[in-house]
């Protein structure tokens, strides 16, 4: 496809979405993911403990194995959280928003502003405690193309949301 010719436009003149500098996410997002893992592992260990005391005659080696799993879960969880935290990046351009996430499968989604249906900023319980927010951007493409920009400061999320909404409104007015 290198010899693709297009009379009206030169591909090299177009702005390249891959060379855009991406903003990274907040450090607290990493802490949030670790806390989520910690909660999961805590619940897991509690269940193990309860089962151990239940005297159902479950052989002891099962518990040993499970504890080993729990321990490796913690390590893997922290490692994956760190990789995910490192992989997250977003950028706003004049006409679209770019969002990148994932380490095992790095996924970059680009949504033009004139295809955004609506924007919502969300905060879970942990988000509130850690001072984080999630910006969810909805398109008509459904779950496949909707994105959640994680690891934002609430202030930033609000600012981006307002920016996009104002753009969408302007778009609708000129249409």
């Amino acid at each position: 496809m290198k010899d693709f010719v297009n009379n009206s436009i030169d591909l090299n003149d177009l702005p390249d979405f891959e060379s855009v500098h991406l903003e990274i996410s907040e450090k607290n997002y990493f802490i949030k993911m670790v806390m989520q893992w910690a909660i999961f592992c805590l619940v897991y260990s509690l269940i193990l403990l309860a089962l151990m005391n239940a005297k159902w005659g479950i052989p002891i080696w099962i518990f040993k194995l499970s504890s080993f799993f729990a321990f490796s879960f913690v390590l893997i969880g922290v490692f994956l959280s760190f990789k995910r935290y490192k992989s997250i990046g977003y950028a706003l351009r004049q006409k679209d928003v770019i969002f990148q996430r994932g380490w095992l499968i790095k996924k970059t989604t680009v949504i033009p502003f004139n295809r955004i249906q609506h924007v919502a900023s969300k905060q879970s319980f942990l988000d509130k405690k850690l001072g984080l927010a999630v910006l969810r951007i909805y398109t008509a493409g459904g779950s496949g193309s909707d994105i959640s920009i994680v690891g934002l400061l609430p202030k930033e999320a609000l600012k981006i949301k307002e920016f996009i909404i104002q753009l969408i409104d302007a778009e609708e007015r000129t249409e």
């Binding site: 790095k106 996924k107 970059t108 949504i111 398109t139 493409g141 496949g144």
Partner: peptide
């Protein structure tokens, strides 16, 4: 509406 690029 949008596109995604995946790099496993």
């Amino acid at each position: 509406q949008a596109f995604s690029v995946q790099e496993p």
